[in-house]
Write a protein that binds this DNA or RNA. Structure first.
Lengths: 333, 333
DNA sequence: ATCATGAATGGTATGCGTACCATCAAGCAC
DNA sequence: GTGCTTGATGGTACGCATACCATTCATGAT
């Protein structure tokens, strides 16, 4: 593969001059510059970022780690970060962990081995190990989605606790009284926060607040919904902790012959407003993913370019509430 | 950041010995090895792949480029390739092009700059520029999804032409006579091939074969379906060239008050069988994405490890036909 | 004509890890 | 004891691009 030396020989200049043509074109005379550029084209020279990164001590690459790439939510994060990075001249190297915290550390290690300039992490759990690992390498890191109580680190997230209360209040305002929550893995802070918000909103009006913990998957949503909807005095509304759970719950309702929203209302989180969904079905809370990704990228670049070096920042962006077709007022229609 | 020399000093050995501990542990005496390993742990040493890649002339990284990351199809490709690569000790660096062929070249360039050992490309168009660019750098490349008539390159794909005929025959066997095809961008070979298969199957039975060309998006599917379904003598069945188009078409049908499958049958391509879809709705052809990804990765590794160096291979995997809930026999029920 | 100035270009060393060859000591045969 | 083999370890140079300092030459000032 062509090196800068090959180009230099071809153009009868020193390697340094070629390097200057690429990095500070103004410091080279126009004639030389043109000769070098012709040689670059003739030899199809593509710079070697390994050598460059080694010398410059930066790679112009950001690492991004998401937990579940099958989630549209993660896809939007990838797109947002990629776009923001590119606008600043950075490439994104990206890994996914299939929601396995061991794999998360592996992926982080792979990014560090490649000497990315910084990492944006949407972690599996909000335990401190991952962030500690990265910061132990003196590498800047920004966390997406979760608060990280044990780390001094920049975080970009929404207040899901608050959103859960709003969501629940909306259902109660529609007149529903028997409401159940289907949440995710209890080990995941988001699952707990959303359940807590639900419990508080229900308690505030004096209703009991049954919560099921499962996983953030359609299968689990299906199972939980089946259990809840088969009970006597079945709920007339469900609050679900993710779009996947909502999908599974809707399937369970269909199987039990319940129409949505006539017989059962569903509100949900994470109903990512993606380009791929022409006509959203679920009423619920949307996170401003694109904006979160942009802010996270800027936070990271602030650290990389040493524009900021203070304590960890905690940016909380507002969620967006959207009414669609999965909810209806309580009562015989 | 810690280097191999720091570790060497800490353990009172030569850098070479540390390198040996990492690469050929058996060639180092157990005592020395343990001392070095302790130093590595104490200093939190993470090898620098930039230096290693420079010296070894390989990075143990594969590049993967997909066109549209919002498509579940692409997600499955990413997962499949990542898994196959990891099983062979390779990392995947991945880029997406938002279906822009200019961006595709940019992304390829970024991968080459980082000196990936090979590239798997799911291209936007089946024009030869992208493959030429990579091969011009003497880098192995495997193409996913499309035939590349102008390139001598390994390709892994399905026979969509044939699948289109099967799909159409199925609809005709259900008794439908007025059938329309909603395809994608005419510039994309897949859109043309699928339309041709449809036309052939219709012609074989002597029916006219109206084809609409649009884009592989729900919006376009919606527009095309609206146009077709509003015509007098509207079709009783639609063949759509992608799951996105099918989604848009279904939405259009809903708006016109047509029930699926009672008033309108829909069959489609690309209905990726993903983990995220609990209960597939559309009858249609599924591509064995995971297997395609695996084969593509192996093809690439064959080239990288010089296990194969002959002419471009063209692997055609069979599609899978799945009947779901979007089709019904023609006739008053 | 002389010298200072600055632009353009070149030479050398460096970043990190490893290929390759050299060294050294221990073990063994005779 | 001598010479040889083998295993363990070290030293040097290199892969590619660039930081830094040196050199060269033209220009303008005096």
């Amino acid at each position: 593969m062509t090196t800068i030396r090959d180009v230099a020989n071809h153009a009868s200049v020193a390697p340094m001059t070629v390097s200057r043509v690429l990095n500070q074109p103004d410091s080279v005379s126009p004639e030389t510059r043109q000769r070098v550029e012709e040689s670059i084209a003739a030899l199809k020279y593509v710079p070697n970022m390994l050598g460059q990164g080694l010398r410059k001590k930066r790679t112009m690459a950001l690492g991004l780690i998401v937990s579940d790439i099958t989630n549209p939510f993660a896809i939007q994060q990838i797109r947002g970060v990629t776009r923001a990075a590119r606008e600043n001249g950075y490439t994104v190297i990206f890994g996914h962990t299939e929601s396995d915290s061991e794999e998360e550390l592996q992926q982080l290690r792979a990014l560090i081995e490649r000497r990315v300039d910084g990492i944006i992490l949407s972690p599996v759990y909000n335990t401190p190990e991952s962030v500690n690992f990265v910061q132990g390498q003196k590498l800047p890191v920004t966390v997406l989605d979760y608060p990280m109580p044990e780390n001094d680190v920049d975080v970009v997230r929404c207040d899901t606790h608050l959103a859960a209360r709003e969501l629940t209040d909306y259902v109660l305002d529609l007149g529903h009284r028997r409401v159940a929550m289907l949440s995710g893995d209890r080990a995941i802070v988001t699952a707990r926060e959303r359940a807590e918000g639900f419990e508080e909103a229900m308690a505030a009006r004096g209703y009991s607040a049954p919560v099921e913990y499962g996983h953030f998957t359609p299968e689990s949503g299906y199972e939980m919904a089946l259990g809840v909807l088969r009970s006597e005095n079945r709920p007339t509304a469900l609050v679900t902790a993710s779009n996947f759970i909502a999908l599974g719950a809707a399937e369970a309702a269909r199987e039990l012959g319940l129409s949505i929203p006539e017989d059962l209302s569903i509100v949900t989180f994470d109903n990512a407003r993606t380009d791929t969904v022409l006509d959203p079905f679920f009423t619920g809370v949307v996170q401003p993913i694109a904006e979160m990704a942009t802010v996270a990228t800027h936070f990271l670049l602030d650290r990389i370019l040493q524009r900021y070096s203070g304590a960890g920042r905690d940016e909380i962006l507002p969620t967006i509430f959207e009414v669609h077709r999965s909810t209806a007022p309580y009562g015989p229609s």
